[in-house]
Every structure is written in C-alpha cells, then in structure tokens.
Computed example of a mutant assay.
Amino acid sequence: MTEEIQRCIEVLEKGGLILYPTDTVWGLGCDATNSEAVQKVYALKQREDSKALICLVANDFMLEKHVEQVPELAYDIMDLATKPTTIIYDKPKGVAKNLIASDNSLAIRVASDKFCRYLINKFKKPLVSTSANKSGSPTPLTFHEIGADILKGVDYVVSLHQNDKNGQPSSIIKLGNDGAVKVIRE
C-alpha cells in the first residue's frame, strides 16, 4: 500500500488525475486545491463545472481547516451514520475556486476507507472524489465496470482492490450555517 500511496502523491503533486478505490465507489481524484486539476476532472467526466464535485478529507482536523464553520450537528451525523455520508457545508476555504458550488458550498466527506485516509494524510491536502464515469452514465460499482475512456483519461490507476465489490454512492446531506438540514441523496 505504501508504494501505491507514493505513486498517487507523485501524480497528484503534478496536477494529475488518479483512479482509486474509496469508501464508496471507485473515484476519479485530484488535488482539491489545484483548479487546473479540478478542471481536468470536469473535462474527463464531460460534466458542467456548475455541478459541484465531492471532496474527501482524512479527519475532522482537515475538515475544520477547509470549512469556515463546521456545525455541531455535522459531528453527530458523522458519528451516527451507518454508511459513508457526505455533508455539504457553507463557506468552504482553501480549495480550488472551481470546486465550490455557486451558492458558496462544498460537499465534503471524512473518508472511512484505510487507503483513502492514509493517502490523504500523507498528501496533506483534500482530494476530489467523484464517481469514475462520464456524466449521465451509470455509476460503476466495481472496477471492471469502469469505461475504457475513463481508464485512459487518468494518469494513474491504483492497483489495490480491483476485484472487490465496492459499496454504493454516499448519502448526501446539506447543512446550512442557519441550522437548515436537507437530505440530497439517501
């Protein structure tokens, strides 16, 4: 795993794209602080950049570093969630501008997968994590369902867990700083 993490970091530091196993489905990833890398993800997915992407962090400390104010309810949701849960926060900071939604929010998940946590901790920056498919196509639930165009479009493919069946996409909940809670995806 150490060698895989090192290879990913080399690609991420150069603004490249990785294809990697996450705590949900296989993800397309890049440095979430690099706007050119984020643009490459939008281009590969053929997705409008007005449709925001998810960002992964390694822990609560990194979350707090990239959100102006984490509502207390977020910690309760993360502690009680029975599956990976992405939370949309108001007023993100320290990430690429083209990663932030037009309403000044950002979807962030604290990764629960061991590989992801180690990678993000070692990289010391959040990663973009979006499903490894073209926009509008079904989300691949296994590595072998990922299209050839996606495989060719990334700079590095992680060789771990390629025969595992991944889970489902995460739940998504929007938490406003005003206390509003909205379930986007269960």
Score class of each variant (00 low, 15 high):
T2Y: 14
I5W: 02
I5A: 01
Q6I: 12
Q6W: 14
I9Y: 03
E13V: 00
Y20S: 05
W26L: 09
L28P: 08
G29M: 07
C30L: 10
C30M: 02
C30A: 13
T33H: 08
N34T: 00
N34P: 04
N34I: 05
E36V: 07
Q39P: 02
Q39F: 14
K40N: 03
V41P: 00
K45W: 02
Q46M: 11
R47V: 10
E48T: 14
A52E: 09
I54M: 12
L56W: 09
V57K: 01
A58D: 06
N59D: 10
N59H: 02
D60H: 15
H66V: 04
E68H: 14
Q69T: 15
V70P: 00
P71Q: 08
Y75H: 10
Y75D: 06
D76S: 15
M78F: 15
T82N: 15
T85A: 07
I87C: 09
D90P: 01
P92K: 14
K93P: 03
V95R: 08
A96C: 03
N98E: 09
S102A: 11
S102M: 11
D103P: 01
I108W: 06
R109I: 08
R109H: 09
V110H: 09
S112G: 06
K114C: 05
F115I: 06
C116S: 14
R117A: 14
R117Q: 11
Y118C: 04
K122I: 07
L127M: 02
V128F: 07
V128Y: 12
N133M: 03
N133S: 09
K134N: 04
K134W: 11
K134I: 11
S135Q: 00
G136A: 00
G136I: 00
P138R: 07
P138I: 05
T139A: 01
F143I: 11
H144T: 12
I146W: 13
G147S: 13
A148R: 13
I150L: 02
G153S: 12
V154M: 03
V154R: 12
V158G: 05
S159G: 08
L160F: 10
H161G: 10
D164Y: 12
D164S: 13
K165F: 10
K165W: 09
K165T: 15
G167S: 13
P169L: 06
I172Y: 00
I173G: 13
I173L: 10
G179I: 07
A180T: 15
V183D: 00
R185I: 12
R185A: 13
